[in-house]
Design a protein around this nucleic acid. Sequence first.
DNA 1: TCGTTTGTCAACCATCGGGTTGACAACCAG
DNA 2: CTGGTTGTCAACCCGATGGTTGACAAACGA
Lengths: 120, 120
Amino acid sequence: MADQLSRVFAALADPTRRDMVARLTEADHTVNDLAAPYDVSLQAVSKHLKVLEEAGLVTRTREAQRRPVHLEAEVFDLMTKWIERYRRQAEERYRRLDDVLRSMPDDAAPIPPGGEGAAT
Amino acid sequence: MADQLSRVFAALADPTRRDMVARLTEADHTVNDLAAPYDVSLQAVSKHLKVLEEAGLVTRTREAQRRPVHLEAEVFDLMTKWIERYRRQAEERYRRLDDVLRSMPDDAAPIPPGGEGAAT
DNA sequence: TCGTTTGTCAACCATCGGGTTGACAACCAG
DNA sequence: CTGGTTGTCAACCCGATGGTTGACAAACGA
């Protein structure tokens, strides 16, 4: 799982981590703070944070013996870009398909056999 | 991994599957067709498609002995909604933080968090 | 009917991911 | 220095995941 985009998607594939991210949009939190609502060990939460950190979604700084966790929202853009790019493309294609269907009266050509294969 | 959002994120955490999705935005493809560029067995590709299907990202119909794979782009909205919601919230927060910093000449009041906000 | 193409299912294997517990490091308060 | 708080690291367990190969089903083409 080398690339960051994969790490970001993977990080957000876990409901607990998504919830953490959600809470971090409101304020920074310490680890204990973050862990409170979940019924898992502190170590498990620490692991989750590591995943989020390696995905670039959060940073952990030092403040006395506490480790405030801070959300880095720029990474969202990475996803948004990817998603939007292909969503737009897909919609574009549906629009075209729609045109095709609309321009097909009744007895349209039944798709020549073998003509489909390669595609671009 | 019950919820769909998790399944969608998990499905897109794999580069091969993202590539498949990308190609499917241009046109439907058969399984063999989809598998061609990758250096894995057809069965492996079939598994990937199953993951994408269970995430609601694609549908597989029947057409003679072929199983054309079709992208279902609506699911993207699910992600986009989630991402945008928290991205916006995070940005909002940064804006507020920025205000705080800007409005702190020397001896400004500490400004209790949460009292600020308000919409938009 | 028989063979080919297309794709899935099943079994197996190695790795990864999320959880646990135990030990310990870093820091502050007494 | 001692003790409490905060958090990480290491080892371990187990289910999920991604890959393989082998068998087989479904549909066409001859």
